[in-house]
């Protein structure tokens, strides 16, 4: 271990993050390119975002991140007892994509596999699941949301995945977990059989749902922290949680990766670690609304730079299946 503290040093720790792997598609589109196409750009705080290749989806990104996490882990894939996957964009409405991820990675057939979905909180749900299940657990959050091409959701929509190996010991201890749920319908949803995420569109209401839920979950944590890593639907909303939670610096990568949905609070965690934070509150927020807050002490060195290739707006439309792609 290289950190200053390990999970053993924290009485009552729920477990620890032992290794991290990230994956980000290489295609990048700038806010400026989208602005030229639509004569406007509606995603606040996003300067550029990542776009999945035509052959990528939540499953392939989850696999790539999971392999990277296992490469950096003391554990090998045969040790993994649990796979917990979180995504709002499973490639099928019904069908166990967890089994596919497990098979591709080559996990043992006795691995307990679960998939969390239907809310951008799915990523932190997967972390909580991993902590509560047999360890070592492989936890993966992967997302590539889409909206209607002319709206703020699609302008923000990015892509990426973060995987954690969660174990009894590790350099980043999870010291507490708290949750908050209260009904705020319609802040972000996708109709059955539809690929496009929608919001009701009442900005003040959506901000209230986000701020209330995130703040209440964080306040229920029995921990001090210097950094806050909340779900980031764009580059601006996380700042609202920061204003509601005094004295903490807010970290998010939506400004450069776009909205990574269920993976976004874990990208925030990675950004906080990259900046040297040793105590982070990770908050997964999702429509409904509900939030999980996790207090994490310690850190794991991670890189937050990924290979990038600029694409045009027509390429974007083709790659995301907004045009073409019908058999």
């Amino acid at each position: 271990m290289t950190g200053t503290e390990s999970a053993e040093g924290h009485d009552g720790a729920l477990g620890a993050v032992e290794s991290v792997g990230t994956y980000v598609p290489r295609s990048t589109i700038s806010a400026e390119t989208v602005r030229e196409a639509w004569d406007g750009f509606h995603a606040r705080g996003v300067s550029e975002k990542r776009v999945p290749a035509a052959d990528e989806d939540a499953v392939t990104m989850a696999v790539a991140a999971a392999r990277n996490a296992l490469d950096d882990s003391e554990h090998n894939r045969d040790d993994v007892e649990t796979l917990a996957l979180g995504t709002t964009t499973p490639p099928v409405d019904e069908g166990d994509i967890g089994a596919t991820v497990a098979e591709v990675v080559g996990l043992g057939e006795g691995t307990e596999v679960s998939v969390h979905s239907q809310s951008t909180r799915a990523g932190t749900r997967a972390v909580v699941d991993g902590l509560r299940s047999g360890t070592p657990a492989l936890v993966v959050a992967a997302d590539a949301p889409r909206g209607s091409p002319d709206d703020a959701v699609d302008h923000a929509a990015g892509a990426g995945a973060v995987a954690l190996v969660v174990a009894d010991d590790g350099d980043a201890a999870v010291t507490d977990h708290a949750t908050y749920t209260r009904e705020f319908p319609g802040t972000r949803f996708r109709r059955r059989g539809n690929d496009e995420v929608e919001t009701y569109g009442a900005t003040t209401y959506e901000r209230e749902a986000y701020t209330t839920t995130v703040t209440e979950a964080v306040d229920a944590l029995d921990a001090d922290f210097e950094a806050l890593a909340p779900t980031a639907p764009d580059g601006s909303r996380p700042g609202r949680a920061g204003r509601a939670v005094e004295g903490s610096e807010v970290f998010q990568l939506a400004g450069e990766l776009g909205d990574t949905g269920a993976a976004s609070p874990l990208f925030g965690l990675v950004a906080a670690w990259d900046a040297g934070s040793e105590s982070v509150a990770v908050v997964g927020y999702g429509d409904g609304a509900s939030a999980d807050a996790l207090a994490i002490r310690g850190s794991i060195p991670v890189k937050t730079a990924w290979p990038s290739v600029e694409i045009t707006y027509p390429q974007y439309l083709r790659q995301r299946g907004h045009v073409g792609g019908e058999d």
């Binding site: 052959d55 990528e56 989806d57 392939t60 696999v63 790539a64 490639p91 099928v92 591709v104």
Partner: peptide
């Protein structure tokens, strides 16, 4: 090698290994 979608047929996505240039 990386694993990607190969194709989708009859509603079922077939995944498999592809190749990309080494970084």
């Amino acid at each position: 090698s990386v694993v990607r979608r190969i194709y989708e047929q009859e509603g079922i996505v077939r995944y498999g290994a592809k190749f990309r240039p080494e970084p």
